[in-house]
Design a protein around this nucleic acid. Structure first.
Length: 867
RNA sequence: GCGGACGUGGUGGAACUGGUAGACACACAGGACUUAAAAUCCUGAGGCGGCAACGCCGUGUGGGUUCGACUCCCACCGUCCGCACCA
């Protein structure tokens, strides 16, 4: 009944009941689903995450919380620009049209959203504040410019993210991606590396998996910087030493070479005098960066002829190689190789005939016979062949080496220093694109980098950009970038890079707390609403978006935009990562993808097959995959809602599969949801006839049957509440089914006490389905005689006395095997239970005459007779 | 390679902190209603044996801890996910 659904949506809207405002004193609950990118249309797959958030938000409202449940649009991004190139439509037009469609679609689902807080990140009203944040970050040193290597697409003239490089080629142009040195803007996320890692421990309502992924991503490692002197006879002029980073200083006596990144200053100095080396370095730079390339690329090195002196033995020198597998931006861009303790070093040593002495004896191995052949040993053990370290354990050896290297000097400075290193790198935010937030700085020939003054914000995107050729439309715009320097008034040039769209989504949850504030943040509103109490989104954002948001929260605190306690600067108190909706895929016999609506399924089981409706030709049934446009296996929300209604869609995506796991869209599954929606309506409709009027006096006494119904109702109410609280929607669904079955049979019974119990049960049922099927719930509430909105009603209190039974059934085991069950008073003590169990004929029979050795009694649960 | 998760009937999945495995749903079978079908309602059902009462087996495989293990421990197999030349 989509028409009736519309009616209730308008009723909620008219009441403005989902509009949130600060209410000091009332407990608040900020519920947020990751906001969507306006890509076009919403399909059933998208709707699952919003449905879950809505169930939670509606439930919390009913439980008396002041709920904030906003929605907005992550509206900047490449698809809009691609559409502009392909279809000659302006990115803004394309984006706002999509937003209009998707907003209408979301509204058709009846979500309890506060639309008065809607934001779109592509609106100057939003990004002007983001520019202000950028400038404050800049002032604080949290934003800076540096030259770094990036993936450069020579055809599209743009930087590509690592994910956009497929097998070494640009995903759009197919051109071989180059590593290019470019000056880019960065956010100093590494300044918070330690805090971001440490605070993960406080996020106990986050999935363990996500915390682990972030910890790995930050990648803290404890090691040492060690300086190797260079043999003067072999070193290039002016080069006296090389510093390496190692996490295993204990293996220093197993060193057999030093390796440098092709971009290391020493490598460059050496290459300046060695043409062959220069060629080698150049080849390394053009090596592909894809997974496949890295796996197949052989470890290659080039002997520079330089010799490095071992820190513990002036007479021991090591060859210095340039190697293709050393990364310039981790550690110092130089390593010492210990082949016996590192597989990669071993492969390298074998290839170039370098020695590999074992220095760590694994536990249980004999020093006389232990040898390294083709497998390195990187575990712990006892030091061997290591001079003063011999006999020490791995950890003790680390400490001993650290102690000595910190004391030893080379050129008046310590040879070694302990150093914590992070895998995390600063966040490069420059993008050579049009459809993003302009970076608000001006480059002046005389003054250098000049921030745009606050009064000139926002720096707006020019509307008349052209999209007919690749490259940055802002850069080639005839006038936009030419400005006067705000500082000296001379000729200057605007920054034409825009910000990575992940910046937009790193603080939108803050903006939602005061979306119309004149400043980026209304501190009071933020203090009241933050942190987000329940955040819901896909696991694909486990690292980037969630880590960036955690960084932003801290950076905004340190620039005075937010005030949060130092030990609780976290944006999302609880995180839930929901599973996707999947669907079978179909291909025509000619290879193209087919939409579900283009095929007809015939037969069952082994003979199940698909036919392309248009041609009558057989179609191929493919794998079940996440709903996506590219595979055409989506089900459009409009089609679904007009056919079944929003409640069926909501009930379906919540049913059966646990919310964190994928759910497969099937017609039979949808049919099941539709049937239940109708069944609930029948129950309420028929029940309303039999049950007492609303507000009737409660009978003084209830008969056994009425009492059973009441117990079932109160228990279900309690259980469903707990299940929703824990986001276990599939369990809540099952509990509602179970209760509907009980209520269904109870409706056949009569009596004044029964009629009252029936009304209570019906009302409880309506409350239970309220968060999940809100339209049907309102319709039912009205059918039960109320002219109020259920959405404004409080969740009923379950009577604790009705949640426990007087008598319970407990299982009886003999030697751990279940032999019988017995009904006994709930309050029965151990002795009573034991006595009752021993009297059971089944127990005696199972004992087969053996004496009873012992009886284990867990009251209210089980009794186990051991004989 | 490193890290992690998961494995339960024909299917999706329940089972609280170690205490009746298979709730609930789907599919299936039988029945009621109907001229008939659909819809709806009722009943049945893990496997094997037995008319039945009942017995045996059973949560990927093999071991272990325990009065008792889907749950805890060890090893293995399989599936999925994340990271990946990080020194």
């Amino acid at each position: 009944a989509p028409a009736r659904e519309k009616h209730w949506q308008e009723a909620w809207d008219k009441g403005g009941i989902f509009r949130a405002s600060t209410k000091p004193g009332q407990p608040k609950c900020y519920v947020l689903e990751m906001f969507p990118y306006p890509s076009g249309r919403i399909h059933v797959g998208h709707s699952r995450n919003y449905t879950m958030g809505d169930v939670f938000a509606r439930y919390k409202r009913a439980k008396g919380f002041n709920v904030l449940h906003p929605m907005g649009w992550d509206a900047f991004g490449m698809p809009a620009e691609n559409a502009a190139m392909e279809r000659k439509v302006h990115p803004a037009e394309w984006t706002y049209e999509n937003i209009a469609t998707m907003r209408r679609q979301l509204k058709s689902m009846g979500f309890s959203l506060d639309w008065s807080r809607e934001i779109a990140t592509c609106s100057p009203d939003y990004y002007r504040h983001q520019q202000k944040l950028f400038l404050d970050f800049l002032k604080k040193g949290l934003a800076y410019r540096k030259s770094s290597k990036v993936n450069w697409d020579p055809v599209d003239h743009t930087v590509l993210a690592n994910e956009q490089v497929i097998d070494g080629r640009g995903w759009r142009s197919g051109a071989l991606v180059e590593q290019r040195e470019l000056t880019q803007w960065f956010f100093k996320i590494t300044a918070y590396a330690d805090e971001l890692l440490e605070a993960l421990q406080t996020l106990d309502k986050w999935p363990e998996k996500v915390r682990l992924m972030q910890a790995n991503w930050i990648g803290r490692s404890q090691g040492m910087l060690v300086r190797f002197g260079l043999d003067k006879k072999t070193a290039p002029e002016g080069q006296g030493e090389v510093e390496v980073y190692t996490t295993r200083p204990d293996t220093l006596f197993g060193a057999s070479f030093v390796a440098l990144s092709p971009d290391h200053p020493l490598a460059k100095a050496a290459a300046a005098k060695n043409a062959d080396l220069a060629v080698f370095c150049d080849e390394c730079r053009h090596m592909g960066t894809s997974v496949a390339d890295l796996e197949t690329a052989e470890k290659q090195g080039f002997d520079t002829g330089i010799r490095a002196v071992h820190p513990f033995d002036p007479n021991w020198t090591l060859p210095v190689y340039v190697a293709n597998f050393i990364l310039m931006d981790y550690g110092t861009g130089a390593i010492f190789g210990c082949p016996s303790g590192d597989q990669r070093d071993l492969d390298f040593a074998r290839k170039y005939d370098l020695p590999f002495t074992p220095v760590i004896l694994p536990p249980g191995e004999d020093a006389a016979t232990f040898a390294i052949t083709d497998r390195a040993y990187d575990g712990d053990g006892t030091m061997i062949n290591s001079s003063f370290l011999n006999g020490l354990g791995t950890e003790a050896a680390f400490e001993e080496v650290a102690r000595r290297l910190e004391k030893a000097t080379l050129g008046n400075k310590p040879v070694g220093a302990r150093k914590v290193n992070y895998r995390l790198r600063d966040w490069g935010v420059s993008r050579q694109r049009y459809w993003g937030c302009p970076i608000p700085v001006i480059h002046c020939e005389t003054c250098g980098i000049v921030p745009v003054p606050d009064k000139d914000l926002p720096v707006e995107l020019p509307k008349d950009a052209t999209f007919d050729k690749p490259g940055n439309p802002l850069d080639r715009h005839p006038t936009w970038k030419h400005v006067d320097c705000p500082s000296c008034g001379g000729k200057a040039r605007r920054e034409t890079d825009t910000m990575d769209t992940f910046v937009d989504s790193s603080w939108y949850f803050v903006r939602f707390t005061a979306p119309h504030a004149k400043t980026p943040v209304d501190k009071e509103a933020a203090a009241y609403w933050l942190a987000v109490d329940q955040y819901i989104g896909g696991i694909e954002h486990a690292i980037l978006h969630l880590l960036y948001s955690r960084f932003f929260t801290r950076a905004m605190c340190d620039t005075g935009h937010l005030s949060m306690a130092q030990n609780a600067r976290e944006p999302f108190a609880a995180l839930f990562t929901q599973g996707m909706v999947t669907h079978e895929t179909y291909k025509s016999r000619h290879g193209g993808w087919l939409q579900p609506s283009q095929v007809r399924i015939e037969g069952e089981g082994a003979s199940r097959h698909a036919v392309e409706i248009a041609t009558g030709e057989p179609a191929v049934i493919g794998a079940i995959e996440k709903m996506s446009k590219s595979r055409k296996n989506t089900v459009d929300l409009d089609d679904f809602v007009s056919r079944y209604g929003a409640d069926v869609a909501r009930w379906f995506v919540l049913s059966d599969s646990p919310p964190e796991r994928d759910v497969t869209y099937t017609d039979v599954g949808v049919e099941g949801a539709r049937r239940f929606v109708q069944r609930v309506w029948r129950l309420v409709d028929q029940g309303a006839e039999k049950a007492t009027e609303k507000g009737a006096t409660k009978p003084a006494e209830f008969g056994a049957e009425a009492n059973d119904l009441r117990r079932a109702a109160h228990k279900a109410l309690d259980q469903v509440a707990h299940s929703i609280e824990a986001l276990r929607f599939n369990v809540a669904v099952a509990q509602i089914y179970e209760f509907a079955n009980v209520l269904g049979s109870a409706l056949g019974k009569t009596g004044p006490d029964m009629a009252w119990a029936q009304r209570e049960a019906l009302e409880f049922l309506v409350h239970m389905i309220g968060p999940m099927m809100p339209h049907l719930a309102e319709e039912s509430w009205a059918r039960l005689g109320y002219n109020t909105l259920l959405a404004n009603e409080a969740w009923p209190e379950a009577d604790p006395a009705l949640l426990v039974d007087d008598t319970i059934v407990i299982a009886v085991q003999v030697n751990g095997k279940r032999r019988d069950e017995m009904t006994i008073a709930r309050t029965a003590d151990k002795a009573e239970i034991e006595a009752a169990a021993l009297q059971l004929e089944t127990v005696q029979r199972a004992l087969e005459g053996r004496p009873v050795k012992k009886v284990i009694v867990v009251p209210q649960r089980i009794v186990n007779v051991v004989g």
